[in-house]
Computed example of a mutant assay.
Amino acid sequence: MGRFDGAAVLITGATGGLGQGAAKGFAAEGAKLILSDIDRAALERFAATLGTETATLAGNIADEDLSEALVKLAVDRFGRLDIAVNNAGIAQSFVRLPQVPSDEARRILEIDLLGVFYAMKHQLPQMERQFKARGKGGTVVNIASVAGLVGAPKLSVYAAAKHGVVGLTKSAAAEYATKGVRVNAICPAHTRTKMVDDFVKISGAPQDLALSELTRGVPMKRVGEVPEIVEAMLFAADPKNTFMTGHTLAVDGGVGAI
């Protein structure tokens, strides 16, 4: 019997490295899934591999209508929304602040910050309604970043967006603490996903050298692995983890220790 048997779990950015890992992790623990990403074909291909009841809806998380439609899909298909993992996001060019193109900065903020705002704007009221009706609300897990806790040279706009996600998380947690909804954020350091692979390619350096540069400030001297971050998501969403809200859980190889 899994931790999430029968739970309806919404995951955005579901075809990325962390999104796929989260979907597989929750599915293995008995969850039913509502998955979203921008590439419809990739989303449907991935959903077909999961072996659990799954609903999909493709779209751009920067469009508020998508967040509203995803909550409606969860309720129409499964009767409720138990857990939301707001994972969709993009990275920025690895350059100093004045070199970030303004249109790129705007896109990062729209997806990484406003996307989470739109998601919670529609998820939280639904979870509160469930709590009022049946005494069981829900849990929101926002995927922020260690860049949302400290400065991130050459990732300034991304860091600003992730600091914003942390602020939204803490504020929503306080607002909904007595309304049956827990809200927490996972703050990973660089993790072995497409974002890290792209950095290695753009750097033009051999992989070992590029990763060494990327993890220079990480005491463990390595990037995180997807299963390590997923384990933190499952912990934050665990129905037995009932007294943790407003928390920023750093999974960062020790960055926060120095």
Rank of each mutant, 00 (worst) to 15 (best):
H190T: 06
Q126I: 00
A144D: 04
M127E: 09
K162G: 05
A144H: 06
R134D: 14
L155D: 08
G148K: 07
T178Y: 03
A161P: 03
K136G: 03
C187K: 12
A185E: 00
G137H: 12
V146E: 11
C187T: 12
T169S: 05
V183H: 10
P125I: 08
V146M: 13
S171V: 01
K179G: 06
A173V: 01
P188K: 14
A152K: 12
N184R: 09
G151E: 13
N184E: 07
A147N: 08
R134W: 11
S171P: 00
T178H: 08
E128T: 13
V165T: 10
A185Q: 00
V157N: 09
R134C: 12
A133Y: 03
G135H: 11
G164C: 02
Q130V: 00
L168T: 07
V141H: 01
K162F: 07
C187W: 13
T191A: 05
T178D: 14
V146Y: 06
A133V: 04
K170R: 15
P125G: 12
V165M: 13
K154T: 13
I143K: 04
G167M: 07
K154I: 03
G137K: 13
A177Q: 04
M127G: 09
T139C: 13
A144T: 05
A174H: 05
L149H: 01
G138Y: 14
A159R: 02
P125A: 11
A147G: 07
L149N: 00
P188I: 14
G180C: 11
V183R: 09
Y176W: 12
V183D: 08
M127V: 09
A189K: 08
R182Q: 00
F131R: 06
R182G: 00
H163Q: 04
A177F: 01
G180A: 10
A147H: 11
T178L: 10
P125S: 11
G138T: 15
L155P: 00
I143W: 02
A133Q: 09
G180N: 07
K132V: 12
T191L: 04
G135D: 12
S156E: 05
A173L: 01
Q130I: 01
Q130H: 01
T191K: 03
V140F: 10
R182E: 01
L168A: 07
Y176F: 15
A152Y: 15
A152C: 15
P153H: 04
Q130E: 04
V146Q: 12
T169R: 08
A159N: 03
F131A: 14
V146N: 09
E128Y: 09
R129S: 15
L149C: 04
P125Y: 08
A172N: 10
P188H: 14
G135Y: 13
